[in-house]
């Protein structure tokens, strides 16, 4: 009938085919990336060995933004075309994105300690990422706050889009705020130019993270589909019980 009722079998077949590749790519790219990052790339002349944190931190920060964009795209698809898989994809994307955001914050903090001497600096970028993390949390909280999961998905989809519109405004205002308050001595992360020996592991790690995202996303979506089936079975049981009691009620009514 309508795709709302469509069996997700086609998706599951596709997922079965993609998933091993995504997993394999994650391992291969991640392994190679880590080798280059930890052993073959040079230490920074200023930052020393701590620069190696960058190979986790920067791809995580990229993924934080990438996942939020993917989340917003999935939510827009869900709201406009009402495709049920888009709802599932959005729901599955959010925790992954939140984890990458948290990873970016944690590694940024670890990097900050030797560089700035404190665990946390209200640097414009870190602050924006922190707010992005809050946006993820708001999305996930709203998504899970309803007894009817469909309501949660629709409501949180609207929130995700509102948040997406807000991301550049927040970024702009935090930059503004930062220039007003921050002393200019902060060392910019990454530095002006990246040497190829550092770019290789960075890109490898970035692609490994993308592959990991696809892998986990498919797994989570599979989980969501199973949860949906279980819910449907439960509802059917309730309905069956209701129908038998109604029949019994009708029978006694006739007897009178």
């Amino acid at each position: 009938m309508i795709h709302r009722f469509a069996n997700p079998t086609r998706f599951l077949r596709l997922a079965d085919r993609i998933q091993p590749w995504a997993a394999g790519l994650t391992v291969v790219l991640g392994g190679a990336g880590l080798y280059f990052a930890l052993f073959s790339s040079p230490a920074d002349y200023q930052q020393g060995e701590t620069v190696r944190i960058m190979y986790i931190h920067v791809p995580s920060a990229w993924m934080a933004l990438f996942c939020y964009t993917a989340l917003a795209a999935a939510c827009a698809t869900a709201l406009i075309w009402k495709h049920p898989l888009a709802d599932l994809a959005a729901r599955a994307t959010a925790p992954i994105g939140a984890c990458f955001t948290l990873l970016a914050l944690a590694t940024g903090s670890l990097w900050g300690k030797p560089m700035w001497g404190t665990w946390w600096v209200w640097d414009a970028r870190l602050t924006s990422v922190l707010i992005l993390f809050f946006l993820y949390l708001g999305y996930m909280a709203l998504n899970g706050a309803f007894d009817d999961p469909e309501r949660g998905q629709k409501a949180s989809a609207i929130l995700a889009l509102v948040g997406f519109i807000n991301v550049p405004i927040i970024k702009f205002s935090v930059d503004w705020w930062n220039t007003l308050h921050q002393p200019a001595s902060v060392i910019k992360m990454g530095g002006p130019a990246i040497h190829p020996s550092m770019l290789t592991p960075l890109l490898l790690m970035a692609f490994a993270f993308k592959a990991y995202f696809v892998w986990v996303l498919l797994m989570r979506m599979r989980g969501e589909i199973n949860a949906m089936k279980i819910r449907a079975v439960r509802l059917r049981q309730v309905h069956a019980a209701e129908a038998t009691s109604a029949d019994a009620g009708a029978a006694t009514g006739e007897a009178r």
Binding site: M1, R4, F5, M228, A232, L235, R236, H239
Partner: peptide, 8 residues
Amino acid sequence: LTCFRGGR
């Protein structure tokens, strides 16, 4: 008309 809600 069809009403499909909550999986049924």
